[in-house]
Computed example of a mutant assay.
Amino acid sequence: MAFNFTILDKQQIESIVPLVEKLNDYKIPATILKERILEMANQNYECAAVFDEDKLIGICGLWFCTRHYAGKSVEVDHVFIDEVYRSQGLGKKFFNWIYNYVKSKGCETVELNTYSTNYASHKFYYNEGFNILGYHFLKKL
């Protein structure tokens, strides 16, 4: 299979809502997800995508920033590959594409958060050379 990796145009950003919904452990309504994603698109955010022909099968949000401990950095967010395409090496290919893309934008590091119970992602990220640096805390206001 030949997959196409790309950065979505802002006009295409709403197309990620169905995939983000599948990651949605908090059961946030699609209307709110759409509002938030449209707002994100107007910040320091881009969305990498994987297509199988014209079918969107994978996404990865990219948040660009500079951090005192890491230099110019990208934080990957809401990584998702359609279940049918998993365990075939697509995640590795997607991340290699992402690494090359963010390097071309001057990034020195890649960071991410993953749910503590998502053991498959832990194995994947360890295999990709990621190390645990700390804990992610969240407080609802």
Rank of each mutant, 00 (worst) to 15 (best):
T31P: 00
I59C: 05
F124P: 00
N113V: 08
W97I: 01
L141R: 10
F95P: 01
N44S: 05
E108Y: 03
Y119G: 08
L23P: 07
L33N: 01
G71F: 12
F64A: 05
N4Y: 10
F51W: 05
D77Q: 06
S121G: 08
F3R: 08
Q12E: 15
I81K: 04
K55G: 01
H68P: 00
G91Y: 12
Y26Q: 08
E46P: 01
E53W: 12
I132M: 11
E83R: 12
G89I: 09
N4T: 13
K139S: 11
A41N: 05
I13L: 14
K27I: 00
I57C: 02
A30L: 06
N4R: 14
K72I: 00
M1L: 14
N113S: 11
I59D: 02
A48L: 05
K55R: 15
F80W: 07
D9L: 07
L23V: 12
E39I: 05
M1W: 09
Y45W: 14
N113P: 00
L23G: 06
Y99P: 00
N24Y: 11
D52H: 06
S104T: 06
E14M: 11
K27Y: 12
Y126P: 00
K10T: 10
I59N: 03
N44G: 00
N131C: 13
L112P: 02
L8D: 01
N127T: 09
T66G: 04
M40N: 04
I81L: 14
P18M: 12
V84Y: 15
Y119H: 15
I57H: 02
K55F: 06
N24E: 06
G89Y: 04
W63M: 07
D25Q: 12
Y101N: 08
S73I: 14
G61V: 06
G71R: 01
N113T: 13
V110I: 15
G129W: 13
F51H: 02
A49C: 11
I7M: 05
A2K: 04
K10A: 03
S73F: 03
M40L: 13
E39Q: 06
K55Q: 13
Y119L: 15
D82T: 10
L141Q: 13
K139C: 11
V102F: 06
K34T: 07
Y135G: 03
E39Y: 08
L56F: 11
I13F: 13
F94E: 02
V17S: 01
L33Q: 04
